[in-house]
Design a protein around this nucleic acid. Structure first.
Lengths: 244, 244
DNA sequence: CGTGCACTTGACAGCTGTCAATGCCGGTGG
DNA sequence: CCACCGGCATTGACAGCTGTCAAGTGCACG
């Protein structure tokens, strides 16, 4: 993992020069640490704050009337947290640590500066935000129109793709530090039903899943079950400003 | 409605000068027309295209394996369509006309130019994208963790807020050109169950709803039912680049 | 070796989906 | 002007996926 958390998301679209990389690192604030379970930022908080995740996983979640919790997405190292609520007076989501976590705080002003000094990085950050929208769209279609099995497999595939991006040498086996309650909050199901569904998936031999480790055995079958196509990032970026 | 479709979304955050407005209008292509029901852009299409909606409503939808359709969001005049799929090789969503529609095509290169010439407009467009993410997050929490009544009321409130933004003089009564099948595809329910739920809402007197016209009778009660708080856009934009 | 958190499992209830038929309304053609 | 027609709304009966409740199991940790 070393020092590449800052560029993971950017380099999915384009390689960054050393100059650009230095520019990025100038924009961040002090490093902070959170223990598993701690809340980083609560929904309703007024602060316009962003965080660059260095290590560990975090969750963005919302609580609806009645007390039920929906996890909007889980974040992995390299993800920029808190962007959506930048558009709001008060934060819409709660950010909490799913594991032990380290992150950097990023001031909104730093973002403003980025817009001024680098149209190239701006375009990449813009694309990252659009990719986030696509991931949300896929999750929405999954929750709205598919059953428990499909929701869970779609989630597993999405998580796997993202783990692979951070760890290209990782294979079909990867660690998912989520409890079944977390998975329930992600998929809009209950803990009990998540358990039942995992049991069925295990029985059907399309994946192995014990403790927090998942092995994808039959990816084609999983993708069939998930009901959503694989998403491939754009490669034709000729329209974005050059990295001058 | 006249000529303000181009600025609706931007002016939610900040007023645009005439110079900025002229800049925006230079970026767009020819105007196009679609009849109700027509497909503007299909999921899977390779084209990286964007559209600025001038009049009418459109839907962004996805079809999951099994044929079920999920409407990701409906667009109203002033909305910029096709942004998320800009990050992908192939479009993730289908854009279709819910009513008779006119729109302008926008080339990706125009966006690149915007990034170069105006950090100010770039920041506003960035904020608009973040606001879209928040709306998706709210929908996700709604579909994942609330029942049919809450989903429908949350949708009505969201649509009302957006209609009000386009038509500030509109009051509690507004037109929603959606069939109950459309509402079902939006809420992840079935046409039949949407009908049952509307019937209950009517009976409880919190709103009136006949044909395609909705009147919000008891907004507080509706918000209670929806289970999600009202979202207020950020007013402190001191961090974004000045409109020089 | 106890304690706690997470995982499992079973029985039962309920919200929502499915299937199928009927009603309503606006538009069209004679 | 009126009958026909197609799309959309409405309703009823029934099934099924998922939630609820409750109890038991197993592994990690002090």
């Amino acid at each position: 993992m070393s020092d590449d958390w800052a560029t993971t998301r950017f380099s999915a679209f384009a390689q960054l020069s050393d100059v650009r990389l230095a520019e990025l690192k100038e924009l961040v604030g002090p490093i902070r640490h959170f223990a598993k379970g701690e809340v980083i930022r609560d929904e309703g908080d007024a602060a316009q704050a962003m965080y660059l995740l260095c290590s560990g996983w975090t969750a963005s979640s919302m609580v609806v009337a009645g007390g039920a919790r929906q996890i909007i997405k889980v974040h992995m190292p390299g993800d920029l947290l808190g962007l959506p609520s930048l558009a709001l007076e008060r934060a819409a989501d709660t950010l909490s640590a799913l594991t032990s976590v380290t992150l950097l705080t990023v001031e909104p002003r730093a973002l403003g500066r980025l817009f001024e000094v680098s149209p190239h990085l701006t375009a990449l950050l813009f694309l990252i935000s659009q990719e986030e929208r696509v991931m949300l769209m896929d999750r929405l279609a999954s929750l709205g129109r598919t059953d428990a099995t499909a929701r869970l497999t779609a989630l597993v595939l999405q998580l796997h793709a993202r783990v692979l991006r951070n760890n290209p040498q990782a294979g079909a086996t990867f660690e998912v530090p989520l409890t079944q309650e977390n998975l329930a909050d992600l998929t809009g199901l209950t803990e009990v039903h998540v358990n039942r569904t995992i049991k069925k998936l295990r029985a059907s031999k399309v994946l192995r899943w014990s403790r927090r480790w998942i092995t994808i055995v039959d990816e084609a079958a999983l993708r069939e079950l998930a009901g959503l196509p694989e998403r491939k990032l754009a490669t034709d970026l000729s329209w974005i400003p050059a990295d001058q």
